[in-house]
Design a protein around this nucleic acid. Structure first.
Length: 428
RNA sequence: CGGGGAGUAGCGCAGCCUGGUAGCGCACCUGGUUUGGGACCAGGGGGUCGAAGGUUCGAAUCCUUUCUCCCCGACCA
């Protein structure tokens, strides 16, 4: 993609609406535009990152055997009245009426809808277990939206719902998702810490929340150091669940079960939450199956959420420096940027064009061909945070070597054309 | 919802106290000079001063109402 033809409206000053670092950087890097409190438009590179996160989550859901569907954003109030949550949910739920005065709502979550789908089509224990997920926009009319996309009112969430014949099997589904969650976050270069949690409004008796470590996180976590070094090849949910990990309100120095050397204190941001809640929704919404004896039994359910749009902010909180964002490769809007420092020099143009033409087919390269000052160009690229940069300028004209800079380490290496192509091949 | 703050050009801000018809930096446009760290010179365009009402000869400025946004708290992916 040629920068000059694209749309990345970077800013020097961050708008006064932003307070925290990820919000400021997202505005400055031209990723989002606020529409109203807690509601955002996603501009091109913001959208690209959002889609990449979504895709990682999707792949790990599919790997874990979950099946993708898509439920609507607008729901009828009926099923919420049935489940009893229409009253319970309060002002957080955005309630609307259609033209004939029917009560509708913008879905804050989907337990009722998915249960309805399930009960309409699944009747036998032979069809279990089932695990359905979707990635859809939700709306919760938060008392106070804040922190940019980290706590928006409209937000993109992956939520899924497991259905099992009994509690024992439901716990297997639960642990299976637990594992998928850890894997998903590790793929985004995040350090997930799983904590036993309250199940809150969703209800139920088994629940974990997933926080990722970030210096600027909202909550303070106390946990066993070993949680920081999970081997992605070898994730054992039960083992991970046994490590000590609590939020600060729960921490009690006297009764802490692990030694001080093992204990680590760090800030975290919640990005996922999983629940087992048994028959809480299957009962009122008639989600039964017949078991082997021909008896009707209520299915045992779990639900699992990941805040996709929140993760965009959370990843920035975990990966940035004073110059801007440092994207992990797996979610970067582009993996490589080709920076022409002399965009009006024929020879430089020739070198860049030839490199760009041989690489542009994969959509992971941003070619900064803009005619702007060198300082502006370099600082914009740092702000946007693309992990690898090839910098072409007068040095290249002199020695025919290509400078490759790593955004994270700031290290620059000089390579021949052949070595450069080799290097780039490995990135893609 | 309780407490605090802010709305003046695309962004960041000054002007308001003490009323006289709007200014600065960046960005933008034109021309020129520059070219390895957010360039320089010259010229230029852009504002219902959040909205409504009131006071006044005259309101960005004073008064009233209202809308929006931000921060702290309870809530949450």
């Amino acid at each position: 993609m040629k920068f000059s033809k694209y749309f990345i409206p970077t800013l020097i000053n961050s708008p006064s609406e932003a307070e925290i670092i990820s919000h400021k950087l997202m505005l400055r890097a031209g990723m989002i535009k606020q529409s109203s409190a807690g509601i955002y438009s996603w501009l091109p590179i913001g959208l690209k990152v959002l889609k990449k996160i979504e895709q990682i989550v999707r792949e790990e859901q599919n790997n874990a055997g979950a099946i993708e569907i898509l439920m609507p954003t607008i729901q009828s109030a009926d099923i919420w009245i049935k489940s009893g949550r229409y009253k319970e949910y309060g002002k957080e739920m955005l309630r609307i009426q259609d033209r004939s005065g029917r009560e509708m709502l913008y879905g804050p979550t989907n337990e009722e809808l998915v249960t309805e789908i399930f009960q309409a089509h699944i009747n036998s224990y032979k069809d279990l277990p089932k695990n359905l997920y979707h990635i859809q926009w939700k709306f919760r009319d938060e008392i106070r939206p804040r922190f940019g996309v980290m706590r928006g009112r409209e937000f993109l969430m992956k939520d899924n719902y497991s259905f099992d014949i009994n509690k024992e099997n439901a716990v297997i589904s639960y642990n299976n998702m637990f594992k998928a969650y850890v894997k998903s976050f590790l793929r985004m270069d995040l350090t997930p810490i799983s904590l036993r949690a309250d199940s809150g409004q969703i209800g139920g008796d088994l629940s974990h929340e997933f926080q990722i470590l970030a210096k600027t996180g909202e909550s303070t976590l106390y946990f066993d150091k070993e949680l920081e070094s999970i081997d992605p090849q070898n994730i054992d949910p039960k083992k991970l669940q046994n490590y000590y990990a609590v939020v600060d309100e729960m921490f009690d120095k006297k009764n802490c079960p692990i030694s001080e050397e093992k204990l680590k204190i760090s800030k975290g941001i919640e990005v996922g939450h999983i629940f087992y809640f048994g028959t809480k929704y299957s009962k009122p919404l008639n989600a039964f199956v017949q078991n082997q004896n021909g008896e009707k039994v209520e299915v045992h359910m779990g639900s699992y959420g990941i805040g996709i749009s929140r993760l965009v902010g959370a990843i920035i909180e975990a990966h940035h420096d004073e110059k801007g964002i440092i994207w992990p490769e797996s979610v970067a809007p582009f993996k490589l940027s080709l920076i022409n420092l002399m965009p009006e020099n024929d020879e430089c143009i020739k070198i860049c064009n030839s490199l760009y033409n041989s690489l542009k087919s994969n959509d992971e390269i941003l070619y900064d061909d803009r005619i702007v000052s060198i300082g502006k160009k370099l600082s914009d690229n740092e702000l946007i945070g693309i992990p690898h940069q090839i910098i072409i300028g007068k040095n290249t004209l002199k020695d025919k070597l290509y400078e490759i800079k790593n955004r994270k380490t700031n290290k620059i290496i000089k390579l021949s054309l052949e070595e450069t192509m080799n290097y780039v091949g490995k990135i893609f």
